[in-house]
Write a protein that binds this DNA or RNA. Structure first.
Lengths: 345, 345
DNA sequence: CAAAATATTGTTAGCGCTAACATTTTATTG
DNA sequence: CAATAAAATGTTAGCGCTAACAATATTTTG
């Protein structure tokens, strides 16, 4: 099966290769009649550009780097599926690269993506999205990038998030409305702003319902199952146990489920448990975990849209905050790990 | 930061570009003195080839396609980490693509990887590794590929697996040695040969220890959590309940844990539970699941080694079965989901 | 209507590297 | 030592496409 080249289209259309190239790249400098004729022929002949040739001849590689920390595999997996699907339809390839907690290695990884692989843009997942050195490097090298749920340098790049504060407020308020009076929280990783927003949303929901928050009801986790185990043990050993525990992600919530079962507590009769993210894990254990659905696949698609949309050649100007901030909708997902009043779900 | 080109090395070494190219590609037709001089300069100048240029000028893209079905995200994630790490060090890029259960779409995906992306090789994870149409297409197009745990056309390509039969035999025998007398099995997806091997190993361990296998102790699953839930419900509703359940993968084992807890059974006091694969899930629930560790990361590395090692230009000959079959070591991983005699662990 | 401006299309050169062939150097043979 | 063969190195052309500039066609302006 021999691949169709630009030249084949040019010959058939009776125009130069450069005109075909202009049509394929949506260059405005092509007449409507020519454009239509070339497009038709290209479609009929199933023309697909050779990306190596494009890369060599131009300033674009058609690669998008996705940099993540694989410890949070459940979150990453879901994002990745969305990213792959989107790239399939837009002629880009995802180059997935793993960052580590070792900051210098992460910088080296990013440099490799910029200088060797020559990605057209980068998507940074948390916690990479919050490393100042990374952000500074990308800005100084004028690399296009999108961050997911960042909490620093919010004008440095486009970013995509959900309203973590509002989601946490609502899910906590839902617990309150469903009769819970002693609600504990396991805070996520301190290096992530989402952790603080979720915590603040939790606090404010309790305050606005005039509920007390005993200090021993607040535990610090780091989004890992292990940190969730430790936190849950302390919470479920209290004399005055919480009747609900809101953990900042599904993995820590799963750990709370585990500890509750170890202590022969009934979930949700003795303690309701709520997570965050709605990863596969939330529905791979019993009881299925109530959580907040982050539209990770949509976020991935949007990130790729942003990076693959041609930039209008306008004078460099401080971009409006509002045009760089993309807040997507979350959903409360109430399942069997929490007591939910049937009338309100 | 300007990238070093082949020509820069050639000028500094006082040789032609072609000689530098030969050195970088380990072509034997270079004198030792020349080779050493060029290598030294290339290292000092941190030369890294432009892959787009290489791809355009030669028959290689330096892409490796990895085709998987994302339903089994835990297994895929682990394999992917190994693959990414290996590729980082060998100048290749992984192009991850998702297959679906829809066979025609999968073929289209593979064709795209072959004809458009022009991958140098493909890695097929189960169950893609067992689709005859895919194997036939790759063979007929003379595409280099490696399969993971295939059960069809074993001479069609290199393949990598563990001894599923032996692993299942050993883990079952371990359950027997630890006092279990009524051991049930949830078979994996019938479309995968590993399922049959694990089942056969289980059967043979029981037979060689003169233990009866009531027919109601065998359940058919499909590697998903949901199929595990259904199977476990039936097994744990039996009057004569099994005292151990060996599920063909971790996800189904997790489902058995869930059902046991739903029924207020104690794991492992009332029923030991064993999975297979040792994915992250096995240690993200309570109790942590006993399982067989598949060295997924090593498998990934080996697959990439096979695909990236230059082929010796020998006459086409039916390759020896033994040189295409790569069997890696597994490990029994006994954790809290099963009753384990301390003296024997 | 002619000149100027704008839009469209085509030509040229080259991106960084390597396949294929040519030339030079070195080793082997008689 | 000369001739031949093999090894090493160099030259040429081009992979498929696009940036930059040139040429041509069309539209606008006075």
């Amino acid at each position: 099966m021999s691949k169709v080249k630009l030249q084949d289209i040019a010959i058939k259309a009776g125009v130069s290769m450069m005109t075909v190239s202009r049509v394929m790249n949506n260059d405005p400098k092509v007449g409507a009649k020519t454009r239509e004729k070339v497009s038709k022929i290209a479609n009929e002949m199933h023309y697909k550009p050779n990306i190596a040739a494009r890369h060599l001849a131009s300033s674009r590689s058609y690669f998008i780097g996705l940099v993540c920390e694989y410890a949070n595999y459940s979150y990453v997996s879901k994002f990745l599926v969305g990213a792959l699907r989107k790239c399939r339809t837009s002629g880009y390839h995802i180059i997935l690269d793993e960052a580590t907690s070792h900051r210098e290695k992460t910088i080296a990884t990013i440099k490799d993506l910029i200088y060797v692989t020559k990605v057209d843009g980068l998507i940074l997942l948390p916690p990479i999205s919050n490393i100042p050195e990374v952000v500074d490097l990308l800005v100084s090298e004028n690399i296009d990038f999108v961050r997911i749920a960042p909490d620093i340098n919010l004008t440095a790049s486009h970013y995509i998030c959900i309203d973590d504060y509002q989601a946490a407020f609502e899910v906590t308020e839902k617990l309150i409305l469903n009769g819970h009076k002693r609600i504990a929280h396991i805070i996520g990783s301190p290096s992530q702003g989402a952790s603080r927003m979720r915590y603040q949303g939790y606090l404010d929901a309790l305050r606005s319902n005039q509920l007390m928050i005993p200090p021993e009801y607040i535990e610090q986790g780091d989004f890992t199952y292990k940190s969730g185990l430790d936190a849950a043990k302390r919470l479920l050993e209290l004399t005055n146990k919480p009747d609900a525990i809101f953990a900042a992600n599904d993995e820590m919530a799963a750990a709370v489920v585990s500890v509750a079962h170890m202590k022969h507590l009934d979930v949700p009769e003795d303690v309701s448990i709520v997570g965050f993210d709605d990863t596969e894990l939330a529905t791979t254990i019993w009881p299925n975990i109530s959580t907040v659905t982050q539209p990770l696949e949509e976020m991935a698609e949007l990130a790729i849209d942003i990076l693959t949309t041609p930039k209008t050649p306008s004078p460099p100007k401080k971009p409006k905050m509002s045009s760089m901030r993309h807040v997507l909708e979350y959903q409360l997902q109430l399942r069997d790990s929490s007591k939910n009043n049937v009338n309100l779900t």
